[in-house]
Amino acid sequence: MEPQQIVKLIEYNDNESQRALFEAYYRRTFAVAFNILRKRESAEDITQDAFIKAFQNLHQLKDKTKFGAWLAVIASNLARNHLKREKKVIYTAELPEVQGQADNNDTEADALHSLDLERVRKAVRELSPDHYQVIVLQFFDDLKIEEIAELLKVSPGTVKSRLFRARQKLAAALELE
């Protein structure tokens, strides 16, 4: 969705606009919640909660083009709180099927790349919610440190620290660092 269109929908914030925003972002929001909770039912509840919180507080979103990232932060915060409240164990059995594996026609380089990819995916799943949050915002939403800090209401130093630790854990999976 184009940024200008997002801004218009947010400014309208009527039922039709909300539905359009939901359609555009619910897959990704659900995925963020699911990747933290690993329970579909809980992730559905958190996704609903996140959209409701977002629609009711749209006036607080300063940069409206960042709606998707903002929504992801709401969802991941709710998911993190849900985990703490429920003291739930992450159910690895519900992990999605692995994709992107090398097939027989892949070159050795491709195969190594796929192997690395799987290692990083596995490491991503094992990140804490705080670390997962900053990784998503930087690498999926392409936000800058300052933008992430503003969304999370923490200092840029805190964001850098979390990113550093998250990257350390991911890199360790590849034994790069």
Binding site: Y26, R27, F30, N35, R40, P96, V120
Partner: peptide, 22 residues
């Protein structure tokens, strides 16, 4: 790798029915 892994992780999750959730 991080970028690609995240992309796969997010895109590989099958979301629930949109109508029901909406």
């Amino acid at each position: 790798l991080i970028r690609r892994a995240l992309q796969i992780e997010i895109e590989s999750v099958e979301p629930p029915a949109a109508d029901k959730m909406w």
